[in-house]
Design a protein around this nucleic acid. Sequence first.
DNA 1: CTCCGTCGATTACAGGTGTAGTCATTACTG
DNA 2: CAGTAATGACTACACCTGTAATCGACGGAG
Lengths: 123, 123
Amino acid sequence: MRVTDAEAKVMEALWRSSPLTAEQVIAEVAAGEGWSETTVKTLLSRLLAKKAIAAKRDGRRYLYRPRIERQAYVAAESRDLLDRLFAGKLAPFVAQFSEQHDLSAEEIEELHKLVAKLKSGDR
Amino acid sequence: MRVTDAEAKVMEALWRSSPLTAEQVIAEVAAGEGWSETTVKTLLSRLLAKKAIAAKRDGRRYLYRPRIERQAYVAAESRDLLDRLFAGKLAPFVAQFSEQHDLSAEEIEELHKLVAKLKSGDR
DNA sequence: CTCCGTCGATTACAGGTGTAGTCATTACTG
DNA sequence: CAGTAATGACTACACCTGTAATCGACGGAG
């Protein structure tokens, strides 16, 4: 069961900190996305229905927390993109991206360190 | 106007070689995706409507060709992912991906060469 | 010249998604 | 104890997407 883009915005809030009440989630995302309160509540319900989050009763309200890790979501999205567009290979992705955008010296340095670490088998 | 996943499959066929007739596009993708002929035709119509492809009459049929480059599509998708999940930065993406998947020595080597080239400012 | 087959155009339709309003319950406030 | 405010549940709805069938026009075969 896939988490949609709008739902992911709500997940991001919960990944940033949790548990949160619906009201707190609304405070985190509604204004930024230009959403009404009920929209956020709908998204919470759908996420609950697809078991992407859990809700624990706390008096008259619920406390929501993620049930899937951001790491897993990010990894799935990344793999999907790589598979669809780069035959699953990382290097071609990096190649095209660096061709399209001028990377800062810092970014390049960071990549360098990363690759060095990979070469040394340090993981 | 966004190209959807199903539409992208048709685009891929046209990026591989073009121009193609509808029949040729169908031959390229229908079986592989388990689609009927009419499904492919619908996708061609929608791509035409959103100007992602062009059609030139050739006797009684049309010859279709891409109107947006694969490069541009791939770049947009990539940037979207990076922006959504990695604050637009390449290095964190590479970091998480290499953590999730064991890269082959060849892949690592390829990345190394790429980064070396970037460092030398060769672009 | 007529009939038939081939194409693209048009229409269809269910399920997903974004976005939001209304309802019903429940717990405080007075 | 009753009324009100807050909160989650339910309902709504248009547009998008995947998937496909049917229609109408036009060109080629006989």
